[in-house]
Amino acid sequence: MAAAQNGDQVAYAALLRDLLPYLRAMARRRFRQAEEAEDAVQDILLTLHTVRHSYDPARPFRPWIVTIARRRIADRMVRLGRRAANEMLSALDDDETFSVPVTNSDMETAVQAREAVAAVADLPPGQRQAFELLKVQGLSLNEASAATGLSVTALKVATHRAVLALRRRLGN
């Protein structure tokens, strides 16, 4: 890495190639879908590239890259969790059941998001309500404020806490 910081492109490429299986293993422990894991690996690599000047060659490389990797994986899981929770809840709203294979396979993707849905369900009631109104149903702050009687600030705070809680839970 120290050589890469000095502009040694061959050493940099070799380091990244060596790192790849390790990052892939880390990402695949978290994501069931291979594409998601691979996107996470690319996120990690891009972040490494962007902040490569922050590595101190006098210190071990591993903690540096592990923190970056965990961070990017956690961020992606929260994003994924939001999207998946959205899909799952709208699927639950439908009264019909489908037997067409295509819809079933869609449902299976949604079932993979069970973890995220459970995490949302376990939030304290105030946070869950704010999160569902704003992030899942997509209401504006003013609409959500009118619907609940809570102030815009209170809703913002509750949503923020909910996102933090989800990030913590899904990030570990």
Partner: peptide
């Protein structure tokens, strides 16, 4: 991506 990253990696000033 790795090849492209490496090919464009300029020397950086360490923090």
């Amino acid at each position: 991506l790795i090849e492209q990253m490496a090919a464009t990696a300029e020397p950086v000033r360490r923090l």
